[in-house]
Design a protein around this nucleic acid. Structure first.
Lengths: 212, 212, 212, 212
DNA sequence: GATGAATGAGCATTCATTCAT
DNA sequence: GATGAATGAATGCTCATTCAT
């Protein structure tokens, strides 16, 4: 009886696909501008240039739309990072300290770049991750993919990696890089971002690599 | 933009102070349980055992109450950390590597302990920091105090501290410690907290101190 | 967790009791005029001269209000009928055919009178009984009381009652009387009500009593 | 009060007639399952396997569809009853009490059988009759036909019929039979239907016929 | 004719805040 | 001061009906 109603249309016509896109785009813009809680369905529809009813033709409710946007956002972001990581993995048998340093730099750089997409939306989503279990799960899943990739990269360079607990190292590397990047990109940290990033790289290098 | 009405009374009598306290306690409990957005004034008053009207006798609005709770929460937390740091500063002229290690451990430990107070409320506030500029400012101010204290501590140990950019180092130390602690305390990180904390300390030690 | 929210106020002040009454009266009037489905909460509140919010201060939803009104309506109606029946039960040891006739007449008359209260509301409720299980149950319960009372009356007159299956006879008597009365009072039956009622009494008399 | 648009097509092609039929069947099924008010156009179209637009190609609105279904339902039902009654009218010049009893049984039986078609749809329509004047009129018209037929039958048997007011008797017979049958077929009356029907027949027989 | 996307008025319900007692 | 009743704007969502393709 209480099967999910799921009356939301799945677009078959092109027009429908466009409308759906318009709604998503409008919602993204509004979530970024005023935040999810301060945005309502009417507004989203208005900004998308469609009727309120159309909103509910494509999404059963505001939350469902949020989930779709979040999922898509993180997926895109993760993909970007993972693509960047794939390039690193070639030919590292003769890797040395300098190349290790380069790897670390590249890893952090990739994370940094993935935060360029839509900072204020990203900030909003960070809050949602804390407020909503479903969003938290989506985020966790995507993060896990990156951590796994990082673990692989570190394993590939193992001979030169000082740390014994590679798994913990990967998590640490991911978490602290993300944190510092968030501060720089979302929180208008007063301190200069470059100085912070430089120290971060220095720290991670000292932690992960054996010199010489 | 009209002038703040500020009809909320400032309690002078003892009974009034107690009522105010009851409201704050009820709100804290509810914010922790269901989050700020999902809690309404009626509920808070009911849980506090007072009338709805009384709520507005003490607070001009819900947000004002939140601000007070947040301010108090962070102040208490900061105080705890700063108190713990004061103890560290005595007599470090003859400090050596081992004592440096101890210092780092203590600094992180103090932060960790300050996250023991009310984890789910803390998590809620982390979200509010991202969602509300006023809350963000309160948080930033308190954080700044800790970072300043950390900078002092590191400066006191300067002879043994490897890092040149002490200010950046303090920020980094604070931010990454907080991040890892949040993960462990609020996010039910799958990975064992101890392993993560151990690596964190190892990393920070390598970064900050010169061995031997 | 999913305990009935039941935020609806239970009035303690006099003012509250009056407001509640105003809402019920307004709803009754509107249900009678335009029917339950065509009446909305806004309208009820407006007619009652209160704010929309007040409506939901006293009733969790429109259905709950309906149930209360229906319950009260049928209870009042039943009470009226039962009171009338109590008078009949005195001293029937020497009852004869004529008194039996009088009894039957009184029984039907009592039912008829109970349909004088608010015919168009009554008609609306008859529809609701068919459309909603909860309303159906309320109705059934009240009907049962009358049928039980009728059974008692017939039993008291048993010596003169021809019918063997008194229980069935009571149900029959109740049902067909109600039906004919409904037709006359609610359905603007073209045929003259008096003629119909006369025949009804004749029929029931022939069925129930042995002549002479 | 503008002129009825009446854009709904009247199907001439076979395919169109079939589509129309599919819509009617789907609506009937849904009205029976969930009731008229809880069924919407989208659902009907979906169940019928046609587009929403097609629905309005055949019917100007939901109500129009209801009216058609109701009209058809009652017409079929009436026809069934009337057909059954035609058989009774042959050769009753020599009719006696026993045949009178048989006639009464047959009349009630015919009504009972006409309630076999689709009980839950029938119940729904009974409610609609109370809620909507148009539906009420349709129902009244069909009922009238049966009452007329019953009057004729009773008149044909007049010599043996005790009642003087044949017209009232026919109405009474129809109304009370219908009522008891509804109770048995639609309302899950706790009491056994057979016992009730037996008493009903007994009552009607005593009322209508002179014994011997 | 058929399709299904789009429309938007309509309605139930919530809740921060005010106010009469 | 305290109480809790009253307020009404705001919002999520539905659905009969229309319309572009």
């Amino acid at each position: 009886m209480s099967v999910q109603k799921n009356k939301a249309r799945t677009p078959v016509q092109n027009r429908a696909r466009e409308t759906r896109k318009k709604i998503i785009d409008a919602a993204e813009a509004l979530f970024a501008e005023k935040g999810y809680h301060r945005t309502n369905a009417l507004e989203i529809a208005a900004r998308a240039g469609v009727a309120t009813g159309s909103f509910y033709g494509y999404f059963n409710n505001k939350k469902e739309l949020l989930v779709e946007i979040v999922r898509n956002f993180y997926a895109t972001s993760t993909e970007k990072v993972l693509n960047s990581y794939k390039i690193q993995v070639q030919d590292n048998t003769t890797a040395n300290y300098q190349e290790g340093k380069k790897l670390i730099h590249s890893m952090i750089k990739a994370l940094y770049d993935s935060h360029t997409i839509n900072p204020s939306l990203h900030r909003e989503f960070m809050a949602m991750v804390l407020l909503d279990r479903e969003i938290e799960d989506i985020n966790r899943e995507e993060e896990q993919k990156i951590i796994v990739a990082m673990t692989s990269l570190l394993n590939a360079y193992r001979v030169h990696v000082r740390a014994k607990d590679i798994e913990a190292a990967a998590i640490l590397l991911y978490r602290i890089s993300e944190e510092i990047i968030h501060r720089i990109r979302f929180m208008e940290e007063d301190f200069e971002g470059d100085r912070l990033l430089a120290e971060l790289e220095d720290m991670v290098t000292r932690y992960l690599l054996v010199e010489g």
